[in-house]
Design a protein around this nucleic acid. Structure first.
Length: 589
DNA sequence: GAGGCACGCGCC
DNA sequence: AAACGGCGCGTGCCTC
């Protein structure tokens, strides 16, 4: 290993590609001085096969030199591709053509293969090191990586560090070579392809980040803090006679400590099984509702206060969360640091996610996605017809169930009941849960469910078949072919009811995830292909948020709508999907 | 001081 | 009233 194996120009890259032109795919990895593309440096790009690798000085080459690597007829395999894509995109810009590249991901592949059955193999996690050991018998010494942190140029890298960089390529290549037949055997090739193609979209989400108006947000949190103070004083008056008092006219109770709160409530005569909101409100006691009120403001201040704002990036002034493309076992994405998938839905909060006047935000939702999936998968004629005619399904179901005219204005309480069942279905809800949800008697909920399934037998059949098949085969799957094995749940001793609910829910929730991931990958490609100045800034399970230049907003909206619809049509065949999209300056709907 | 757990609650 | 699916985060409390 010597320094002259480092390539610093387009010719070197071309020569190497010619040498490996017969390889079915190439593996690629990068070395960076840190994890933050806006802060840290891309040092090395290494790629190749199991036998031959090349190191590219990232600082010495331009996008033009690298484009041949990512031509669409070549599969480029990475481990946790969104990270490398993020660093590459930031360093070279859209010229590199990453949005159109044909990406495969060994991390995504492994997650698909092991989803719900981690306990089948000796797992050391999903790191490249762990997979290299298990699939290729290779020892990767990750301590070497420490050497890259803070480095500015590859001239500072030692031979052992360069050797390590090459070994990562070799390992990634070998892992993918082993995963491929496994994926094929399990029928996971299609979904693995979809996951690979979605990596760039997730990289874009993280890299571009989400715009937030910090001053407006802080003002909301300041209000919450004030109201939390008032709420705490109100609580003190309620508990004054049953608690110790401090020197400042308050009680010594810590209202954040459920045990203390439960004891204090008991002294007021309220003996509760827990201190959940519904249980507190059901008592009708003023101290209980005061506690609910306090908690609401406390939640805002703690979860969405300074800790949240600490994630605003010093250089970009935006939020750059981490998205895990398959963070949920159902195939849904998850988001953290900060989580942009649980921002309060009230408009004053969403309104803080705002762009300057020359920019626009486009919000686009799948309308009733899960219900449409249920309709499609079950083939329930009543559902299919109502959706095809664009009618209000909740209202129609209510009319059918209760024998009375129901719409959003006539008997809306009956519509709400039908809606509760329609939603609950996807979660495998039983009569107990429904009674809780509706605040009615158990036997009333039982009768309601019976009437529902009698009216819509194919819905019942679909859900029960999911549960039965899941238990029999040991796994459930989505329309996109994603699988979820019940192996780990069984080993954890989860009861059958729990398994059945998961088996009912995963195909629905997971198909929704398949669908929006395909939409995302098509949208980002379309933006590039059509030279639309727009990019993704958030995704919340069945909703996408896109930022665009004001003059491109109409085109961006049409692209988002069309791609969401066409992606939906690949998974939901019997009914049309519906997308509600709007252009604005904030995330407010 | 770090890590893990239970709880409660924000979202879909 | 543990039993409605999937997440991440803050708090309090525990152990090490």
């Amino acid at each position: 290993m010597s320094r002259n194996q480092i390539v610093r120009d387009a010719a070197g890259i071309k020569d190497f590609l010619a040498k490996v032109s017969n390889a079915p795919f190439l593996a690629l990895d990068t070395e960076t001085s840190g994890l933050d593309p806006h802060q840290d440096t891309l040092l090395l790009i290494q790629f190749g096969t199991a036998d031959e690798q090349v190191l590219v000085d990232a600082q010495a080459v331009d996008a033009q030199a690298l484009t041949p690597i990512f031509e669409h007829d070549r599969v480029v395999v990475m481990h946790n591709a969104s990270f490398d894509l993020k660093m590459l995109e930031n360093h070279y810009g859209p010229l590199l053509g990453l949005a159109q590249a044909n990406i495969a991901d060994t991390l995504a592949g492994e997650q698909l293969l092991r989803n719900g059955r981690k306990s089948d193999v000796v797992m050391q996690g999903f790191s490249l090191k762990a997979l290299a050991e298990r699939y290729a018998g290779m020892e990767l010494d990750k301590s070497v990586r420490q050497g890259f942190y803070g480095i500015e140029s590859i001239d500072d890298l030692s031979d052992s560090e360069l050797f390590y960089a090459e070994r990562d390529v070799e390992a990634t290549w070998k892992i993918f070579a082993e995963q491929l037949p496994e994926l094929r055997k399990e029928g996971l090739l299609r979904i693995a392809g979809l996951e690979g193609q979605a990596q760039y979209a997730f990289a874009e989400l993280e890299l571009k980040g989400c715009p937030v108006d910090v001053d407006s947000w802080r003002a909301l949190m300041s209000d919450a803090q004030t109201q939390r103070g008032e709420a705490r004083r109100a609580l003190d008056t309620h508990f004054w006679d049953v608690a110790d008092r401090d020197l400042f006219g308050g009680t010594t109770l810590n209202y954040n400590d459920d045990e203390q709160v439960m004891d204090a409530l008991a002294r007021l005569g309220l003996r509760l099984p827990n201190t959940r909101k519904e249980v507190l409100l059901a008592t009708g006691h003023p101290a209980a509702s005061a506690l609910v009120n306090y908690r609401e403001h406390q939640k805002l201040v703690s979860t969405y206060g300074e800790g949240f704002l600490a994630h605003v990036h010093g250089k970009t002034g935006r939020l750059h969360p981490r998205f895990r493309a398959s963070g949920a076992i159902t195939g849904r994405a998850s988001c953290s640091e900060p989580n942009l998938q649980n921002i309060p839905a009230q408009s004053q909060f969403r309104a803080c996610f705002r762009v300057p006047p020359e920019r626009r935000l486009i919000t686009a939702d799948y309308v009733g996605a899960e219900l449409r999936i249920i309709a499609d998968q079950s083939g329930e004629p009543f559902f299919l017809k109502a959706i095809a005619q664009g009618q209000d399904l909740h209202a129609l179901v209510a009319t059918r169930l209760f024998g009375r005219k129901v719409s959003k204005t006539e008997n809306p309480e009956l519509r709400a009941r039908a809606k509760a069942i329609n939603f609950g279905l996807a979660y495998g809800m039983g009569s107990g849960g429904l009674a809780e949800q509706l605040g009615c008697r158990l036997h009333e909920a039982e009768q309601l469910l019976m009437a529902y399934f009698k009216a819509f037998p194919k819905v019942k059949a679909f859900l029960e078949t999911s549960a039965e098949e899941g238990l029999r085969r040991g796994y459930v799957s989505t329309v996109g072919g994603r699988k979820y094995w019940l192996t780990d749940m069984r080993r954890e001793g989860r009861d059958e009811g729990s398994l059945r609910r998961v088996a009912k829910n995963m195909p629905i929730q997971g198909t929704n995830a398949d669908m929006i991931k395909l939409a995302m990958s098509r949208i980002v490609r379309r933006f590039r292909a059509s030279a639309i100045d727009a990019f993704l800034v958030n995704m919340v399970h069945d909703e996408l948020v896109v930022e665009s230049a004001a003059q491109d907003a109409d085109k961006a909206l049409r692209a988002v709508e069309q791609e969401m619809m066409s992606a939906g049509a690949e998974f939901v065949k019997q009914v049309p999907m519906a997308v509600e999209a709007a252009i604005g300056e904030s995330w407010e709907h």
